[in-house]
Structure formats: structure tokens, C-alpha cells
Design a protein around this nucleic acid. Structure first.
Length: 262
DNA sequence: GGTAATGTTAGACT
DNA sequence: TAGTCTAACATTAC
């Protein structure tokens, strides 16, 4: 689930629910998910503070803390199965791996079933992005920058778009979706893409992300024409009625329509 | 019960 | 050296 659109939905959710209320207690704190911070440092860093803002870079969510002097930022990465839930009381959801209790009686859970996510306290969002060598966020790029990245890869266009060090935020499902919308085969080499194809990729990237965020990243709320609603070999292509094929690129299932993606 | 699943990454490879 | 690929990670759902 959590690619850029999902994380953007979480960001807005956090922003509209849990900000500016003191954290009175921190529960669960699954050790396995902690990155660069001990359990006790995480808890003491959060307690008595409140969340001040919610920012996103690629698939990473950052929440600044207040009071701000010397305070780090809370970092959340959702892996393949993470999400957030905000609710009154202490009836916590299954698979909650970190729960913040607020002074008004509400709780915020970071939920993760498969434990592939990450929780941390970082000095700043920009420092973390630099340290991880993440590329620019997909939505922050202008057409020219996107062109340089899209054509600069040495492998396939799908590999390049999924590489977080080149462009941050796109994952397996949405790269397939964008390539399908732009009519470009996932195994095409970056260098051989035409001007027109790169322009199409760029505009479809924005259009698809907008649609997904608008639908709160829920496939069932998205238009039926999207490929992600038919990620299965042999289904009808929503554009041309042809047959959807499955292949593997960089170890990940890739769905595409050979008839309309060339 | 086998297989695949939206992510990242160390180490192997080109 | 730099970019790319493979396998591994942990757990659930079909």
C-alpha cells in the first residue's frame, strides 16, 4: 500500500487530527522497527511534547515536535503494510507498533503488520534525506528535472522510476500505473525514450498521483480505468481491452498491456 | 500449504 | 567507480 499517494493521505490525516496536543504516554514501541534511536530515547523525546507539523518526502513521513528548541523530528516509514489510526481511548488496533497517547484522551497508532517499516527520531527532514541519499520528491520536480532523471538511468524505465535515490515516492504499483497511462512498456531503456514519451510520463505521473490522493489511496474509490484495479495476468486491459500480462522486473511483479504499451 | 504481497538494502555483479 | 540485480527480511492472506 504505502507509496507516495498513501503516505500523502497519512500526512493529511495526521495533520488534521493529532497536532498541537501534548503527548502524555508512549506505548508499544516495537524495537525491531526502531532506526538509530533507542526505545528509551524515543519515549523521552516524545513525552511532554506535541506534534507540530506533518511533512512528507517520498514515502517517508516526518512530524516536527514542539517545543522546538533542540527537538528532533519523528520519522515514520510504512514499509509494505503500515498505516495510521487516530481514535478516542485505548482500544488499540491489531498490529499497533507505536501508540502515542494525548492529553485529550485520544491515541494515534502506527500500525504495521509485516514489520518492514521504520520508526525514528531524526535531527531534521533535510538531514535525513541527505543521509539516505533520497532523490527529490516526485511532486517537487519540474519537467526538465524529470526528463534528466527519466533518461539518465542505465536500465529500464521501470527500474529508474522505482529507484528512490533518483526520484522519491514512486513504488511498484504506481510505476506500473503511470507507465500504462503513458503507453510505455516497462522494460524500455531509459535512454531511448523520445521527448514526447518523457513529457507523457511526467504529466501522467501527476495525473495518477492526483487521482490516487483524491481517492484517499483506496483502489475501490478510484476510476475503473486504472490498471491497479486489475493487477492480474489475463484480465482485460482497461484501455484497449487487450490482455494484461505479468512479468518480473527487479524482482517485482510487473503488470502491463503489450498492446497499448510499446 | 505454497506462493505472492505495495518496501529497503547489503552484497554480488556488470 | 557507479549503477543494477538478487536475496533476504517478517508476516499475513489467498
Amino acid at each position: 500500500m504505502p507509496e507516495l499517494p498513501d503516505v500523502e493521505v497519512f500526512r493529511r490525516y495526521l495533520e488534521s487530527t493529532a497536532l498541537h496536543t501534548p503527548i502524555t504516554k508512549v506505548d508499544y514501541v516495537s524495537r525491531r522497527l526502531l532506526e538509530g534511536v533507542s526505545r528509551s530515547d524515543l519515549i523521552s523525546g516524545l513525552k511532554e511534547r506535541s506534534l507540530q507539523s506533518a511533512e512528507r518526502h517520498g514515502k517517508y513521513l516526518f512530524a516536527a515536535l514542539e517545543p522546538g528548541a533542540g527537538a528532533p523530528e519523528l520519522l515514520l516509514h510504512f514499509g509494505m503494510t503500515g498505516s495510521l489510526s487516530y481514535y478516542k481511548g485505548t482500544d488499540d488496533p491489531k498490529y499497533a507498533q507505536l501508540v502515542l497517547r494525548f492529553s485529550d484522551g485520544y491515541s494515534l497508532s502506527y500500525i504495521n503488520k509485516r514489520m518492514l517499516g521504520r520508526i525514528g527520531l531524526v535531527e531534521s527532514r533535510t538531514a535525513y534525506v541527505r543521509e539516505k541519499e533520497l532523490g527529490p520528491d516526485a511532486l517537487s520536480l519540474d519537467g526538465k528535472q524529470f526528463d534528466r532523471i527519466a533518461r539518465g538511468g542505465r536500465g529500464s524505465i521501470k527500474t529508474t522510476l522505482m529507484n528512490q535515490k533518483r526520484i522519491a515516492g514512486l513504488g511498484n504499483v504506481y510505476v506500473d500505473e503511470i507507465l500504462h497511462a503513458a503507453g510505455i512498456a516497462p522494460k524500455r531503456c531509459c535512454g531511448e525514450l523520445s521527448d514526447d514519451e518523457v513529457t507523457r510520463l511526467y504529466s501522467e505521473m501527476h495525473r495518477i498521483i492526483d487521482i490516487a490522493v483524491e481517492a484517499r489511496a483506496r483502489p475501490e474509490e478510484m476510476p475503473k480505468e486504472l490498471l491497479l484495479r486489475r493487477r492480474k495476468a489475463g484480465r482485460d486491459c482497461p484501455r484497449c481491452g487487450g490482455s494484461v500480462k505479468k512479468t518480473t522486473i527487479r524482482g517485482r511483479s510487473t503488470y502491463y498491456c503489450p498492446a497499448c504499451q510499446t
